[in-house]
């Protein structure tokens, strides 16, 4: 996972991985018949860890802010790898894109659930669930994909996460000007 985060998922070779874990190049292929099998296995494991981190940080009956904070905390833990995954996803095997989609679906579900509860209390205005989630994920992914511009050498989630969360919640505030799509 560290190799992929540092070099990029597509750019990392099986020889790089063998060298990083201190085994012969051939040993890698005893465990993974092809490079694609290795990539799928690594990203599957990453998906499990990220989902577990999100679930761990998510308070019971979380507010919308609580869901966003849990999402930010989980992403911060795996930021270099996740940023690579987001940037390279369109070029990666289909099972990898399914893993990313599934991870996003879990977040979309929690955001939608929390927003619906807060809408009933008049704390956020009504926004279609897909636009709600896509606005949040587009904002985050833009900053992650360009993390070297927004937080050179550091964590863009640490530097900008709170600002992005505040801005997103501000857009949803009932007093925010309504824009119909």
């Amino acid at each position: 996972m560290r190799c992929f985060a540092e070099r990029g998922i597509l750019a990392t070779t099986t020889a790089d991985i063998a060298a990083a874990v201190g085994v012969s190049h051939g040993t890698v292929f005893l465990h993974f018949p092809t490079r694609e099998d290795l990539v799928i296995a690594v990203i599957d494991e990453f998906g499990r860890r990220l989902a577990a981190a999100f679930a761990r940080d998510l308070p019971r009956d979380a507010s919308l802010q609580g869901v966003l904070d849990a999402h930010l905390a989980a992403l911060r833990e795996f930021e270099p790898f996740y940023a690579r995954l987001v940037a390279e996803a369109p070029l990666l095997p289909s099972p990898v894109r399914t893993t990313l989609f599934t991870l996003q679906n879990a977040v979309a579900f929690e955001i939608s659930r929390a927003a619906a509860a807060e809408e009933k209390r008049g704390r956020v205005r009504r926004v279609a669930p897909h636009l709600l989630f896509n606005t949040w994920i587009a904002l985050l992914h833009h900053y992650l994909a360009n993390r070297e511009l927004f937080a050179p050498g550091g964590s863009v989630i640490a530097e900008k996460g709170a600002e992005l969360r505040r801005h997103f919640l501000h857009l949803l505030h009932p007093s925010a000007r309504r824009h119909e799509s």
């Binding site: 289909s94 099972p95 399914t98 989609f101 599934t102 996003q104 679906n105 979309a108 579900f109 939608s112 279609a128 669930p129 897909h130 636009l131 989630f133 896509n134």
Partner: peptide, 24 residues
């Protein structure tokens, strides 16, 4: 249907993603 509602993806893509999700 949930993927269409929650992420706004096209119905065809939603069917494919759902099938891939369930396969695992």
């Amino acid at each position: 249907d949930h993927f269409v509602r929650s992420q706004g993806v096209h119905e065809t893509a939603a069917q494919r993603m759902a099938a891939e999700l369930l396969a695992g």
